[in-house]
Nucleic acid binder design. Structure first.
Lengths: 139, 139
DNA sequence: TTGAGAATGATAATCATTTTCAAATATAAA
DNA sequence: TTTATATTTGAAAATGATTATCATTCTCAA
C-alpha cells in the first residue's frame, strides 16, 4: 500500500476510486505535475473523474503535508511529494532563459537554514528555496 | 530624483502623475506592500488613479528588476524593492502560527547559494528563500 | 437492506490579474 | 502654436485558476 493510502486509511478518510486514481498518478510521477497534468493522467484511470475532485484531493494531500505546491512567477503551479512522502529532499533552480526547472539537494544548505532560523528565534518547520539562474556556457 | 524615476527616464518611459504616485508609495514604504495597499496609498496622491495602472506600473517595475513580487501560500502577494533599488538584501521567515513575516540577511547563505548554482552549471541571477517556522518559547 | 453521512461531477461563483477600448494626455513635427 | 501621432489612462469586460454550491451517487455500519 502506498504512503498516501496508508495515511488516508489511518486518518479514516475513505479510499475512493477517484482518490486512488489521483494517488496513482502522483505516486508514480517522476517529478513536478500541474493540476491539468494530474487531471488528464488520472482521467485515464478513472474516466468519470472531475476537475473539482482533483483539486479537492490535492488540497487534502497538501494539508496532510504529503504534497507540496510550488508557485513560480509566470509558470503554472506544480505539485510534488514532500519529504514526508518521498525519500529525497531537494530544491529548485529555475532557468531564466527557458523556464526549465532543475533540482538539487544540499545538506549544508538545510543545516545553514536551520541554524539561521534558530538564530532568529524560530524552530524551522520547512523551507522553500529557489535559485534563478542562467546556464553557464563553458562546460 | 529617485531610483525608479532615474531608470524610467533613462529608458525613455514617461514619468506621468500616476506613475510618480505609485513610485512615491513604493519608495517610501518601509516593508512589504500588497497591490491594494499600494493602490489605496497612491490614490491619496493621485485621486483619479485606477487599479489597472497600479498593476501596469508594478509589472513594469518588476520587469525592470526594480521590484519583486513575493507569493506565499495562503497569504496575499506582496511587493518590495529589489536589491537593485534598495540597499539591503534579505529573506523571509514566515511564522506558521500567525502568518507574520520576519526578515533576515545572511551573506553566508547568499554565498552558499551562489556556490551551489555554479556547481550545478548555473550563474545565479537571483534567488528566493523562505523559511517556515514556529517561534521558540525559551527566549 | 437501509439510512445517514461522505464524496462526486457539473456548474456557478469568486478572486486576482490582464485585456480591451474609447477618451485623455503627452510628444513630435511643421 | 497648431496639428498629427503615439502613449497612457480608467472603467469595464475578459480571463484563468481555484473554490463553493448542490443535487445526485456512493459508502459502510447497523
Amino acid at each position: 500500500m502506498s504512503v498516501f493510502e496508508k495515511i488516508f486509511k489511518q486518518k479514516g478518510i475513505s479510499l475512493t476510486a477517484s482518490r486512488l486514481a489521483v494517488f496513482n498518478v502522483l505516486e508514480n510521477a517522476s517529478g513536478h505535475m500541474t493540476i491539468n497534468g494530474i487531471f488528464t493522467a488520472a482521467k485515464q484511470l478513472d474516466p468519470g473523474l472531475g476537475l473539482s475532485t482533483v483539486y479537492r484531493t490535492v488540497n487534502t494531500l497538501c494539508s496532510l503535508n504529503l504534497l507540496e505546491k510550488h508557485e513560480f512567477p509566470d509558470i503554472e503551479a506544480v505539485y510534488e511529494k514532500t519529504a514526508a512522502a518521498a525519500k529525497d529532499h531537494h530544491h529548485h533552480i529555475i532557468d531564466r532563459d527557458n523556464g526549465k526547472i532543475e533540482e538539487f539537494s544540499s545538506c549544508e544548505l538545510d543545516n545553514l537554514l536551520r541554524k539561521i532560523a534558530r538564530q532568529n528565534g524560530y524552530d524551522m518547520l520547512g523551507h522553500k528555496i529557489e535559485i534563478y539562474g542562467k546556464k553557464l556556457q563553458n562546460k
